[in-house]
Simulated assay, not measured.
Amino acid sequence: MTSPVSHSDAERREGGDAAVDTVRGGHGLPPFAALRAFEVVGRMGGVRRAAQALGIDHTVVSRHLRTLEDWLGVPLVERGGARLVLTDAGRAYHARVSAAVHDLVAATRDIMASGTGEGLRLWAVPGFATQWLSDQLADFERTDPGFAVELRPTDACANLVQFEADADIRFYGDDWPPQPGGPGLQTLELARPPLVIVASPALAATLDLSVPEDLLSAPLLHEEHHEQWRAWLTQNGVPLAGRSLSGPLLWHAHLAIAAARQGRGLALANRYLVGRDLANGALVELTVPGTRPVTIGSYWFVARADRWNAPQIARLRTFLRQRTREG
């Protein structure tokens, strides 16, 4: 004679999903649409922005939030004012829900990707990516077989919160925005290199730089603005109040360096960008009597805080930090 089986027990045996979803107290998971809406609302900071990101009406997002709060029996958001704010319980819950959603995104991306090796999507500022980072990643992949890094050189900072990339590396100046990091992100300073003045050997041979002020009459090359040269000159005692600097804007570090190789002028760079050119003689470093080294910012490695210790991110971060210390 078999033992009697309750209706709820039979449902658990017949429905594998119900058995998997069962948690303490007999409740299953909340509706996934409500969880997804809550995750995007917390990340975007508002119902309307979340609705736009999800491609649905904002009233639907609001309904999902209320459904989730009713299901949990806990208020997740403070309503009122122009900006939606998560409660303490909402912030704690959002951190765990967001990490779980990221795992789902990563798992889906991995299973859809061709090949079986591990991979990581890395965005980086173009000059650093092409002049130094690409070589380091080649070494990294040789020392860590099966691990592939998808490097994207770009001036755009990756939206890591929205999973646009796994990590982002770029140069952040000390005295101008933006600054590295932000809500939900963690940062590591990879390197803080001093600037060096470089020029082609032919141009360098024509210059007579006896004091820092002599640079004001030299052909200067700039990236997207004049701030690097202004900072270098100011920190070396050259008064610039009300004075503009001459020279073309090249917009990218690697283009300014290329122009310097061609003899078009003097570029400010760091050794991560010009180390190869200095070694092979394509560029020479210029020294000016009475000046001192100037550092205006750092390269930062940025990733989501909830993915900071993920094996792929941790391994790459450790490798790059070691390489910058060595060189």
Score class of each variant (00 low, 15 high):
Glu223Ser: 08
Val125Pro: 00
Val211Gly: 07
Phe140Gly: 10
Gly181Gln: 02
His94Val: 09
Ala253Phe: 15
Ala148His: 13
Arg91Gln: 09
Asp214Ile: 10
Val97Lys: 00
Ala303Arg: 00
Val196Asp: 04
Trp176Ser: 01
Trp123Met: 06
Val149Gln: 08
Met44Pro: 05
Ala106Ile: 10
Asp17Lys: 12
His225Tyr: 13
Pro4Val: 09
Arg96Gln: 03
His254Thr: 05
Glu189Asn: 06
Asn280Asp: 11
Val20Glu: 00
Gly73Thr: 13
Arg13Pro: 04
Leu86Trp: 02
Gly173Phe: 15
His27Gln: 01
Pro239Val: 00
Thr130Phe: 08
Asp168Thr: 07
Ser3Leu: 12
Ala253Met: 03
Met112Ser: 14
Ala129Thr: 12
Arg323Val: 05
Gly119Ile: 09
Thr154Glu: 06
Pro293Val: 01
Ala241Ser: 05
Leu72Asn: 00
Thr67Gln: 15
Ala100Ser: 15
Asp88Asn: 10
Leu255Cys: 06
Ala165Lys: 15
Phe32Trp: 14
Asp168Arg: 00
Ala129Lys: 09
Phe38Ile: 03
His94Ile: 06
Val97Ser: 01
Thr67Gly: 11
Gly237Cys: 08
His222Ser: 10
Ala258Glu: 15
Gln235Ala: 14
Ala92His: 00
Ile296Gln: 11
Ser8His: 08
Leu29Tyr: 06
Glu164Leu: 06
Asp144Cys: 08
Pro145Thr: 13
Leu54His: 05
Trp176Gly: 00
Thr206Val: 06
Leu249Glu: 04
Arg170Pro: 08
Gln131Thr: 13
Leu65Gln: 07
Ser246Lys: 10
Leu233His: 06
Glu189Thr: 14
Leu120His: 10
Ala253Gly: 12
Ala259Glu: 12
Ile197Lys: 09
Ala138Gln: 12
Gly26Leu: 00
Arg243Ser: 09
Arg63Asp: 12
Ala310Glu: 15
Leu203Val: 07
Ala258Ser: 09
Gly80Pro: 01
Ala107Phe: 15
Ser62Ala: 14
Ala191Val: 15
Gln235Val: 12
Ala202Glu: 14
Ala148Lys: 11
Glu39Ala: 15
Arg271Lys: 07
Asp174Gln: 10
Glu285Pro: 04
Thr318Ile: 01
Ala204Asp: 08
Phe319Met: 05
Val85Cys: 05
Leu320Met: 03
Tyr172Phe: 14
Gly265Gln: 14
Pro194Leu: 12
Thr130Ala: 11
Ala82Val: 02
Phe163Asn: 13
Val101Ser: 04
Arg91Pro: 01
Leu65Phe: 11
Gly55Tyr: 07
Thr187Asn: 04
Gln235Phe: 11
Leu72Val: 13
Leu35His: 09
Ala138Glu: 14
Val85Arg: 13
Ala100Pro: 12
Glu118Leu: 14
Glu213Leu: 07
Pro193Asp: 10
Ala19Pro: 04
Gly237Phe: 04
Ala303Val: 02
Ile169Arg: 00
Arg292Cys: 05
Gly237Asn: 13
Tyr93Arg: 06
Val211His: 03
Ala156Glu: 02
Arg230His: 07
Arg109Glu: 15
Val302Lys: 02
Ala99Leu: 11
Gly55Glu: 11
Val149Cys: 07
Gly181Ala: 02
Phe38Gln: 04
Thr22Gln: 00
Pro219Ser: 10
Ile257Arg: 15
Val294Arg: 13
Leu137Arg: 04
Asp103Leu: 06
Ser298Cys: 02
Glu150Lys: 10
Ala99Cys: 02
Trp132Val: 08
Glu78Phe: 01
Ala204Gln: 06
Ser98Gly: 00
Asp168Ala: 07
